[in-house]
C-alpha cells in the first residue's frame, strides 16, 4: 500500500527543481526503487515529482572531448544495449545488464540506479535503524550476511548499485542541477560513507537532481569487465562484484582501476590492489600480490566473512582472465 502524496510531472528541469525543492518532495525517475521505499515506509513523501517528462534527460550522445554523455533518465536496458557503451565501456554495459530483472531494467534509469537507497533488510524493514534516524544499527549484532566489510562505521550497509562501481572504474562524473546552477562532480566524490553522513549515500542536497552521467574518452587498448556474484541467477544484488578497467599496451599494466561492489557503503576502490597492479607484469606473482592487497583492511562482521574470500576470488579470476 502506498501512502498518500501529490504528484507533479514537470516539463522542464527548472520546473522540476522548483517542485523538487518544496518540503517533503521526492524525485521519481523510473520509480522502481522509490515506490518500494514508500510502500515499506522507509521514508515518506508529500509530493512525488516525476522526471519522466524531461526529454532532455534521456539519451546517449558523444561529448566534445570524445567521451559519452548518458542522460540520467536512460534506462538500464538502454545503457546495456547501446552499441557504443557495449564496445567501449563494456564494464558499464555488463553492470547495467546484471542489475535486477529485465522488466526492472526496462523501467529503472541510470540516474535512479546510482541514487537508489540501500538494501539492508533492517533499513528496508520495520526497524527504526540509525540510517532512518533511530539510534541502533541492527546489523552489528544481527543478521549481517550481506553487509559491508569495508568502510562501515556506525552503519554497515553496502551500496546497492551495480552501475556505480562501473562508472567509478571508468572515471565518470555526474552532472548535478540545482536551483543555484549546475556542477559536475567526479563520481568518486559523489558517494558518501556513513562517517560522512549516516543518513545519505551521496552528496545530493534536497532539491538537487542528477541530469547526466559523463564518461571520459577511453584510451585505445582499454579492457574492462564487470563481474558480479550473487546468490541466485537473476534479480539479486551483488554479494560482491568487481569493475575492472585496465590498460595494458605491452606486457605490463599501465593503468588499473579496480572498484568493488557489494562490499562497502559506497563503490569501493581497491586502491592497494590498483597500486600493486599498476606498472607490473600480469603474472602469477603479481596476481597473488594484487589479490592479497585487495582485501587489505577488510573488517568482516560475524556472518559476512565469506566476502573476504569472495573478493579475493573475484580479483584472481578477473585478473587471470585479463592476463
Amino acid at each position: 500500500m502506498l501512502p498518500n502524496f501529490t504528484y507533479e510531472r514537470p516539463g522542464s528541469v527548472d520546473e522540476a527543481l522548483e517542485h523538487g525543492s518544496s518540503e517533503g518532495a521526492v524525485l521519481h525517475a523510473g520509480g522502481t526503487d522509490l515506490l518500494g521505499c514508500l510502500r515499506d515506509g522507509v521514508f515518506s513523501a508529500k509530493k512525488v515529482v516525476s522526471l519522466s517528462g524531461l526529454e532532455e534527460l534521456r539519451g546517449i550522445s558523444p561529448t566534445r572531448d570524445g567521451g559519452l554523455r548518458v542522460g540520467a533518465l536512460t534506462t538500464l536496458t538502454g545503457v546495456a544495449s547501446d552499441p557504443t557503451i557495449a564496445e567501449r565501456y563494456t564494464v558499464l554495459a555488463q553492470a547495467a545488464a546484471s542489475a535486477a530483472s529485465p522488466q526492472l531494467r526496462n523501467q529503472g534509469t541510470i540516474g535512479g540506479n546510482i541514487c537508489q537507497r540501500p538494501r539492508c533488510w533492517y533499513f528496508r524493514g520495520d526497524w527504526h535503524c540509525l540510517r532512518k534516524g533511530g539510534d541502533t544499527c541492527y546489523a552489528i549484532a544481527g543478521e549481517n550476511h550481506f553487509h559491508c566489510i569495508f568502510g562501515g562505521s556506525g552503519c554497515y550497509i553496502v551500496h546497492p548499485s551495480d552501475t556505480a562501481p562501473a562508472l567509478q572504474a571508468l572515471g565518470a562524473s555526474v552532472r548535478i542541477a540545482s536551483r543555484s546552477g549546475s556542477r559536475t562532480v567526479p563520481i568518486e566524490s559523489f558517494f558518501l560513507l556513513p562517517a560522512d553522513d549516516i543518513q545519505r549515500e551521496n552528496l545530493l542536497e534536497p532539491g538537487e537532481l542528477v541530469t547526466e552521467v559523463l564518461l571520459p574518452p577511453v584510451a585505445s587498448g582499454t579492457r574492462s569487465v564487470y563481474r558480479k556474484v550473487r546468490d541466485r541467477g537473476a534479480w539479486d544484488f551483488a554479494l560482491a562484484g568487481l569493475a575492472a578497467v585496465v590498460t595494458m599496451p605491452g606486457d605490463s599494466v599501465e593503468t588499473a582501476s579496480l572498484v568493488l561492489s557489494g562490499v562497502a557503503p559506497k563503490p569501493w576502490r581497491a586502491a592497494e590492489a590498483e597500486g600493486a597492479l599498476t606498472g607490473a607484469r600480469l603474472d602469477a606473482e603479481t596476481i597473488a600480490r594484487v589479490v592479497a592487497a585487495s582485501v587489505a583492511g577488510a573488517l568482516p562482521l560475524e556472518h559476512n566473512g565469506y566476502k573476504v574470500a569472495l573478493v579475493r576470488g573475484l580479483m584472481e579470476e578477473t585478473l587471470r582472465a585479463l592476463a
Partner: peptide, 25 residues
Amino acid sequence: ILDSRQTGKVVNANWHDYKIPTAKD
C-alpha cells in the same frame, strides 16, 4: 532468516531477500 538475537522477527519476509529460484537458477 530470523533476527534471533535482537527482535525475533523475520528479516527476509519478501521475495527479494528470500530467494526462490528464478528461470536462471
